[in-house]
Simulated assay, not measured.
Amino acid sequence: MNRIKNIKELAELAGVSTGTVSRALAGSALISQKTRDRIQALADEHGFRPNVLARNLRIQRTGAIGVLIPLGHETGQHISDPFFITMLGLLADALTERGYDLLLSRVIPTDDRWLDRITGSGRVDGVIVIGQSDQSAALDLVAGHYRPLVVWGGHTPGQSYCSVGSDNRKGGDLAASHLIERGCQRIAFFGDPGAPEISQRLEGARDAMARAGLADQLTVLPAHLVAEAAHPDIARFLSQEGQRPQGIVAASDVIAMSALRVLAEQGLSVPGDVRVVGYDGLALGEQTSPRLTTVAQELTRGAEHLVDMLLRRIAGEETQSVVMQPELVVRLSS
Rank of each mutant, 00 (worst) to 15 (best):
121 S>C: 06
315 A>N: 11
69 I>L: 15
163 S>G: 00
141 L>V: 05
280 D>A: 08
38 R>D: 01
108 I>V: 14
333 S>I: 08
109 P>T: 02
171 G>Q: 12
227 A>R: 15
200 Q>G: 11
78 H>K: 15
197 E>H: 15
219 T>N: 06
198 I>A: 07
286 E>R: 01
20 T>F: 13
83 F>P: 04
226 V>W: 03
323 V>R: 10
268 L>K: 06
239 S>A: 13
53 L>V: 15
119 T>Q: 14
320 Q>V: 14
333 S>R: 05
184 C>I: 11
164 V>G: 06
95 L>T: 12
57 L>R: 00
73 H>N: 15
223 A>T: 10
94 A>Y: 10
71 L>H: 06
240 Q>C: 04
265 E>I: 05
67 V>W: 01
191 G>T: 05
251 A>H: 08
15 G>S: 00
231 H>P: 13
202 L>F: 01
111 D>A: 09
282 L>E: 00
188 A>P: 00
293 T>Y: 06
279 Y>T: 07
255 I>A: 07
312 R>M: 13
53 L>T: 14
126 G>F: 12
223 A>N: 11
80 S>T: 14
182 R>A: 08
34 K>L: 13
199 S>C: 02
329 V>Y: 12
225 L>H: 12
4 I>V: 12
314 I>K: 08
183 G>T: 01
219 T>H: 05
12 E>R: 11
203 E>K: 14
